[in-house]
Design a protein around this nucleic acid. Structure first.
Length: 1085
RNA sequence: GGGCCUAUAGCUCAGUUGGUUAGAGCGCACGCCUGAUAAGCGUGAGGUCGGUAGUUCGACUCUACUUAGGCCCA
C-alpha cells in the first residue's frame, strides 16, 4: 500500500531528505554506471573560477546544465558530467596584489616571485566549497570528486601539446600574409603588440581594466611642420594630441582617396611665414584659417599621389635613412587635425603601418616612461611631465616648425590602480595564427546550432569575421607556463618548444624532475618560478637557452578543456576517453563567453582538428550551445554587493526549495535578459509545485481508502475523461521531448504547466465522485488506473526539471508497490507516449465542453445565480462537426453547471443568427486589390445569402464570384437574452426556478454547511456522523424531507433528525440562505 | 564610432510561415466553489504591440530610419 502523504508539505525539508537518499544510494554514480554501454551524450562544463562566490546567474546556468543530461540519460544515453575549475588568470593575481598590497611588477619582484605565486595558488580554491554546496543543493548531478583543474600537470601538458601542434604547423606558401620579414611562418610565433601600459606600475592592463579608467582631460595639442625633401620651402602639417610621441616619429600617413592641397602663404601668420608652402587635407583648411590665410592654392592631389614623399625629421637625433617618408593608409580620415597623421610606435594603427612599410622600430620613450638616451636634450624626462610638452612646443616654435597649438578636450585612459596616465607600448608576446584559419573557423561555425540563433551569424559570426592573431601569452606570474625556450644570443635562431613533460625532460636533461620538484606541494610543479630554472642547451650554438618568460592567456587555458579535462594526450587512458567524448553535444554558458570560452573552444579545437585531419563537421568541439543572458534584479539593475540587491541562492533554497528555483529558470527564454526576484520563485511553488503535490496527495488519500494498487489488467480505460487525459499526457510528453531536442526550454515547461492545469482543473475536479463513490466498479478502477499512470508518467517527465519532488512522488507511487522498478526516478526511462495516437477529435471536443462550461458560468454570474442552485436547462447551439462528441460530454457539462437538462442544437433562430465575415486569408490571394470591396460585400450579405453560404453554395454578388471558403460563418446572439456566444457556439440558460429546484438548492446548501462542520470537527473522510437540525422554517423542512437520503449519503450521515423546536443549549442558529437553522454534527459510534 | 540584442497589459513574460477578436501568470475588481489543495476556480477590467515612414489587399510579424535600455568591441 502507498504511504500516507504529509498534509503540510515542506519542500526545502523534503529536498534535504532526497539529497541524503541520493547520496546514500549513490544514484548519481548509478546514472553513469548503469548506462556505461549506452551511446554517449557529451556535455562539457565550462570551468568557473572559484575565487569568487557563486551567484544567482550561476544557478540559472546550473539549472540548465543539469536539465539536458538528465533528460538524455532517461532517454538511454550515457552522460559524463565532469566538473572543472578555472584556477589561472588575472582575477586571481588581482586578488593577490590587492591583499598583499602590491601595485606593480616591481613590487612583486621585491616581495618575491615565489612567495607571490604561492599566495596566488593559495587563493585559487577559496570559495570552491561554496560552489560545491550550491551545485549540490540545486540538485545538479555533477562529478565534483574528479574535477579537471587547469593548474594540474596533466592539464598543462594539454596546453603544451596544442602549442606544439601550432609550433609545428606552418603557413602554406599561398596563404602567407604580409606580416613583416622577421616573423616566422609557424602557427605559433613571437611578435609585438601595442598594449595599454602603466609605466608607473610597470604593468600592461587588460581591456577591462583600461575601460575602468577613462577620464576627460584637456591636453595641449600641436600641429608640427615637417619640411619636405626636394621641395622648396614646403612643409607637411601633422596634428597630435601627444606631443611626446613626436620624439619617436618615423613616418606620416595620408588617406589615399583624400584630397590634399598645397597652399602658399601670402603673408606672415602666427604659425608660418610668407612664401612657405603648407600641405594638408583640403577639408581641413577651414580649421587652420588663422594660420594660413591669405594664401595661394598651388595644387590639389590625392593622398595616394603624395605617398613616397620624404621629409626631414624634426630633430637631428631622429635621422635614419629608413624612416621619414609619407605613406598612405585607409584609416586616415579628415575628421580632425590636418588629415595627415604622424606615426610613432605608440598606437595600434601606427604599429601596423610601421611594420607593413618596414620602418625602423623607434621607441624614444622607454617602458619606464622616461625618454631614452637617443632622445637628445630630452633624455631622462618623464613622458607625461607637463613641461615636456611645453619644451617641445617652444623648441619647434623657435625653429619655425610649429604651425599651431591648441587646448583640446578628449578622453584618455588612466591606470585604475595608481591614476597615472597610460601609454600604449609595444610589448612582446607569442601569437597563434588564428587569422590564417579564420575561413576554417567560419566553416566550423556553420555546423554549430546556436540558441538563440542570431548569435551564430551576429555577435559570434562577426567576431570570427574580424578575428586577428591571438596573443596567447601574458607577461604575468600565475598561469599555465609557456613552454618555449630561446637562445640567449639574440642573433642565434635557436628555440625549442616542449609539447609534453617527457619532451621537456629530453631537452633539459636528467635534472629536470629534481628542479621541478616543489617541496611544499610534495610533487612536480610545472609553474613559475621552478620552470624558469630549467636551462636548455641551444641546439644551434649550445649556449644555455632561457624560457620565454610568459604565462598563457587563461582563456587559451580554459578553451582547450576538450582535451585538457582528460590530460590528452599525455595522460594514461586519455586517448580512449577523448575518442568517446569528442565532439560535445551540448554546452551552456553566458553571452559574455562569445569572445571568451565559445571563441577559445572553437579556435583551439579547429586548430586541433586541422592538425589531426578531422572531418569538417567535427572541427568545432561543440554542436549545440545555449547562450544565456544576464539575470538582473527586479528593477532591471545588475546585482552587485555595493547595491545590496544580490539574491543569495541559499535563501531561495531554504525558503522555497531548489525545484521551485530551477523551475523559475525554465519558464522564460534564458537568452533574454531576465528580471529576477524571489517572488518569481514563490509563484513557481504556488503555480506548479503545490498543484502537483495536491494531485498526488488526492490520489494517495483515496487509493489508501480503497486499498488500491496498480494492477496490469485494469488498463481498459474507456471513460472519455480517461481517454482524454491520457491523450493530453501523450501530447505533453511529445511537446516536452520536441522542445528539449531543440534546446528550447520555455515551450517544454509551458507544456508541463498546461498539462498540470488539465489534470487538476478538469480531470480531477470532474472525476472526484468516481473516486469517492462507494461502488467499486469498472469506472472507479479505470479512474484509478488512469490517474496512477498519468501521475507516474508525468513525474518522469518532470524529473529532469524538478528532480526532488519528482523523486519523492516516484518513491511512493512506484517503488513502494513495484519492487522491481528502478530505485530512483533518475534511473528510470523517459516515459513512452501513453497512447499510440491522440484522439484529436476527443481533445477538441473536450476543449469545446470546457468552453461551454466557462460561458455557462459567465452567464450564471451575470444573472447572480450561484452554482449550488440547480437550474432547469442549458442550451447550446453549435455549428461545426463536434456535435456528437459534445453530446457525449452531456454529463460533464450538467454536473459542472449544475443543470437538469442539456439541449444541443445545430441552429436555433431564436437564439442565434448567422453572420458572414470575410475570410481574408483566402480572399487576399484571389482578389488582391479588390479584396476590400469583396470584404464589404460579404459583410453586407442578407440573412438568406448567409444561409446559402452556410449551406455550402457559392454566391455571385456585385460581380464577384464568392466561394464558401471565402467566408467565415459565425453565430451572433440577439442582445437582451441570457445568452453567451463565442467562437463557434452559443450557450443559453433557462433560469426559471421551480419550487423543486429551489428545494434542491437548499438541500445543497445544507450539505455544504454540514461538510464545513465535519471539517471543523476534524473528522476523517470516512467517519460516519449524526445530524440534528432544528428549525421552524418550512422551506428548510420541506427541502430536507425531499432530499433526506441524498443529504445523508453525501455527508456519510447515519441519521438525520429534524425538530421544529430550537435546542435548549446556548448554540446559535446559522443562516442557510435567508433561513435560520440550528445544526449540529457529531461522530457516529 | 561599429556590431548584436531588447522594447507587447500595472508587473514578469509567450507570440509558429504577415491574415479577421494579440495570449499566460501575478496583481486588481467582482463572484463562485470547497470531503485533494498553507486553498482552488471562474469572469471582468486593462495593451493596439517604443516612434515614424515604407513594402503589401493586409504588418506585433518584413524593410528603412528613429528613440530608450542592455551587452560586446573600438
Amino acid at each position: 500500500m502507498f504511504k500516507p502523504v504529509q498534509k503540510n508539505v515542506n519542500f526545502p525539508a523534503l529536498e534535504e531528505n532526497i539529497l541524503k537518499f541520493w547520496e546514500e544510494k549513490q544514484i548519481f554514480q548509478k546514472t553513469s554506471e548503469q548506462r556505461s554501454e549506452c551511446p554517449e551524450f557529451v556535455f562539457y562544463d565550462g570551468p568557473p573560477g572559484t575565487n569568487g562566490r557563486p551567484h544567482i546567474g550561476h544557478m540559472m546556468q546550473s539549472a540548465l546544465k543539469d536539465l539536458w543530461p538528465r533528460y538524455k540519460i532517461m532517454n538511454g544515453f550515457h552522460v559524463i558530467r565532469k566538473a572543472g575549475w578555472d584556477t589561472h588568470g588575472l582575477p586571481i593575481e588581482l586578488t593577490a596584489e590587492r591583499e598583499l598590497k602590491l601595485s606593480s611588477k616591481r613590487d612583486i619582484l621585491t616581495f618575491g616571485e615565489d612567495k607571490y605565486i604561492d599566495y596566488c595558488r593559495s587563493t585559487v580554491f577559496r570559495y570552491k566549497e561554496s560552489w560545491e554546496k550550491a551545485i549540490r543543493r540545486i540538485g545538479r548531478f555533477l562529478d565534483m570528486e574528479h574535477p579537471y583543474l587547469t593548474l594540474s600537470n596533466d592539464y598543462i601538458q594539454s596546453d603544451w601539446y596544442l602549442l606544439k601542434l601550432a609550433w609545428n604547423r606552418k603557413l602554406e606558401p599561398d596563404r602567407i600574409e604580409l606580416q613583416g620579414k622577421s616573423v616566422s611562418p609557424r602557427f605559433l610565433y613571437k611578435d609585438y603588440r601595442i598594449m595599454p601600459y602603466c609605466a608607473r606600475c610597470g604593468t600592461t592592463l587588460s581591456n577591462f581594466e583600461v575601460a575602468e579608467g577613462y577620464k576627460d582631460v584637456i591636453d595641449m595639442t600641436l600641429t608640427a611642420k615637417f619640411r619636405v625633401q626636394g621641395m622648396e620651402n614646403t612643409f607637411i602639417a601633422a596634428w597630435t594630441t601627444t606631443a611626446w610621441t613626436l620624439l619617436s616619429n618615423v613616418a606620416l600617413a595620408v588617406g589615399p582617396e583624400v584630397d590634399y592641397v598645397a597652399v602658399k602663404l601670402q603673408g606672415d601668420t602666427e604659425g608660418a611665414k610668407a612664401g612657405q608652402t603648407i600641405i594638408m587635407a583640403a577639408a581641413r583648411l577651414e580649421a587652420y584659417k588663422k594660420q594660413l590665410e591669405p594664401y595661394d592654392l598651388l595644387w590639389t592631389r590625392k593622398g595616394s599621389e603624395l605617398a613616397g614623399l620624404e621629409y626631414f625629421p624634426l630633430w637631428d637625433f631622429q635621422v635614419n635613412p629608413q624612416a621619414h617618408r609619407v605613406v598612405s593608409d585607409d584609416y586616415v580620415t579628415t575628421e580632425d587635425g590636418t588629415g595627415i597623421v604622424h606615426l610613432a610606435l605608440y598606437g595600434d594603427d601606427d604599429f601596423r603601418i610601421i611594420r607593413r612599410e618596414g620602418f625602423p622600430l623607434v621607441q624614444n620613450v622607454a617602458e619606464n616612461g622616461l625618454c631614452t638616451q637617443n632622445a637628445g636634450q630630452y633624455a631622462g624626462r618623464y613622458f607625461k611631465d607637463e613641461t615636456l610638452d611645453i619644451d617641445v612646443l617652444k623648441d619647434l616654435k623657435q625653429r619655425d616648425l610649429l604651425l599651431a597649438k591648441e587646448k583640446h578636450e578628449h578622453s584618455y585612459p588612466f591606470c585604475y590602480r595608481c591614476d597615472a596616465a597610460l601609454m600604449y607600448f609595444a610589448r612582446p608576446g607569442w601569437f597563434l595564427r588564428t587569422a590564417s584559419y579564420r575561413p576554417e573557423m567560419l566553416r566550423a561555425n556553420a555546423y554549430i546550432n546556436w540558441q538563440p540563433n542570431h548569435i551564430k551569424e551576429g555577435r559570434f559570426g562577426n567576431w570570427l569575421e574580424n578575428t586577428i592573431d591571438w596573443n596567447v601569452t601574458r607577461e604575468r606570474y600565475w598561469g599555465s607556463p609557456f613552454p618555449v625556450w630561446a637562445c640567449a644570443d639574440p642573433d642565434c635562431p635557436g628555440e625549442v618548444c616542449a609539447g609534453s613533460l617527457d619532451e621537456l625532460r629530453q631537452f633539459a636533461g636528467s635534472e629536470t624532475d629534481k628542479i621541478l620538484f616543489n617541496e611544499k606541494l610534495g610533487a612536480l610543479d610545472l609553474h613559475k618560478p621552478l620552470i624558469d630554472r630549467l636551462k636548455i642547451p641551444c641546439p644551434h650554438c649550445s649556449k644555455p637557452m632561457s624560457r620565454e618568460n610568459f604565462v598563457l592567456d587563461s582563456w587559451f587555458n580554459a578553451g582547450l578543456m576538450f582535451i585538457g579535462q582528460w590530460g590528452y594526450p599525455a595522460t594514461l587512458g586519455s586517448k580512449e576517453i577523448f575518442a568517446r567524448q569528442y565532439p560535445c553535444d551540448f554546452i551552456c554558458e553566458a553571452i559574455d563567453q562569445t569572445r571568451g570560452w565559445f571563441y577559445t573552444l572553437l579556435a583551439t579545437s579547429t586548430l586541433f582538428s586541422m592538425c589531426n585531419d578531422f572531418p569538417e563537421q567535427d572541427w568545432s568541439c561543440y554542436r549545440n550551445v545555449i547562450c544565456t543572458d544576464l539575470v538582473l534584479d527586479e528593477e532591471g539593475r545588475k546585482m552587485s554587493k555595493s547595491r545590496g540587491n544580490v539574491i543569495d541562492p541559499a535563501t531561495l533554497f531554504e525558503k522555497f526549495g531548489a525545484d521551485a528555483t530551477r523551475w523559475s529558470f525554465y519558464t522564460t527564454n534564458p537568452w533574454n535578459v531576465r528580471r529576477f526576484s524571489a517572488e518569481n520563485v514563490k509563484d513557481c511553488v504556488r503555480d506548479v509545485l503545490l498543484p502537483l503535490w495536491n494531485s498526488y496527495s488526492f490520489f494517495i488519500t483515496y487509493a489508501r481508502v480503497d486499498n488500491w494498487t496498480p494492477n496490469k489488467t485494469d488498463l481498459c480505460q474507456d471513460h472519455p475523461l480517461d481517454r482524454w487525459l491520457l491523450g493530453e499526457l501523450t501530447r505533453c510528453q511529445r511537446e516536452v521531448s520536441q522542445a528539449l531536442d531543440q534546446y528550447d526550454v520555455a515551450p517544454a515547461s509551458s507544456a508541463c504547466a498546461r498539462f498540470l492545469d488539465q489534470l487538476t482543473n478538469w480531470y480531477i475536479r470532474r472525476s472526484r465522485r468516481r473516486f469517492w463513490k462507494s461502488e467499486d466498479d469498472h469506472d472507479k478502477q479505470s479512474a484509478y488506473a488512469t490517474l496512477y499512470q498519468v501521475l507516474t508518467d508525468f513525474c518522469l517527465i518532470l524529473a529532469p526539471f524538478m528532480p526532488f519532488v519528482s523523486e519523492e512522488i516516484y518513491q511512493n507511487l512506484v517503488t513502494t508497490v513495484k519492487p522491481e522498478a528502478p530505485e530512483s526516478v533518475h534511473l528510470a526511462a523517459w516515459p513512452k507516449p501513453a497512447l499510440d495516437k491522440i484522439d484529436e477529435e476527443l481533445a477538441a471536443t473536450m476543449e469545446f465542453a470546457r468552453k461551454i462550461v466557462r460561458s455557462g458560468r459567465d452567464l450564471r454570474q451575470k444573472h447572480s445565480i450561484k452554482v449550488r442552485q440547480p437550474i432547469a436547462e442549458v442550451k447550446a447551439v453549435i455549428s461545426d462537426g463536434t456535435f456528437d462528441g459534445i453530446k457525449a460530454m452531456k454529463d460533464l457539462i450538467l454536473e459542472e453547471l449544475n443543470a437538469k437538462k442539456f439541449t444541443l442544437l445545430k441552429d436555433d433562430k431564436t437564439l442565434v443568427q448567422l453572420i458572414a465575415k470575410p475570410n481574408l486569408k483566402a480572399l487576399g490571394p484571389h482578389f488582391k486589390n479588390e479584396m476590400n470591396k469583396v470584404a464589404e460585400v460579404i459583410k453586407a450579405f442578407s440573412p438568406d445569402v448567409v444561409q446559402q453560404i452556410a449551406d455550402g453554395l457559392s454566391v455571385k454578388k456585385d460581380g464577384f464570384d464568392i466561394q464558401p471558403d471565402d467566408v467565415i460563418i459565425e453565430q451572433q446572439a440577439p442582445t437582451n437574452c441570457p445568452i453567451s456566444n463565442s467562437e463557434g457556439f452559443t450557450v443559453a440558460l433557462n433560469l426559471e426556478l421551480s419550487d423543486d429546484l429551489v428545494a434542491e438548492g437548499l438541500a445543497r446548501e445544507i450539505v455544504h454547511c454540514i461538510q464545513n462542520l465535519r471539517r471543523e470537527a476534524d473528522l476523517e473522510v470516512t467517519d460516519q456522523i449524526r445530524i440534528r437540525i432544528s428549525t421552524d422554517e418550512s422551506a428548510i423542512i420541506n427541502a430536507i424531507a425531499a432530499h433526506n437520503s441524498w443529504i445523508r449519503t453525501e455527508t456519510l450521515a447515519k441519521d438525520l433528525s429534524v425538530a421544529t423546536e430550537p435546542p435548549n443549549s446556548s448554540s446559535k442558529p446559522i443562516k442557510i440562505d435567508q433561513y435560520s437553522v440550528y445544526l449540529t454534527v457529531e461522530k457516529a459510534i
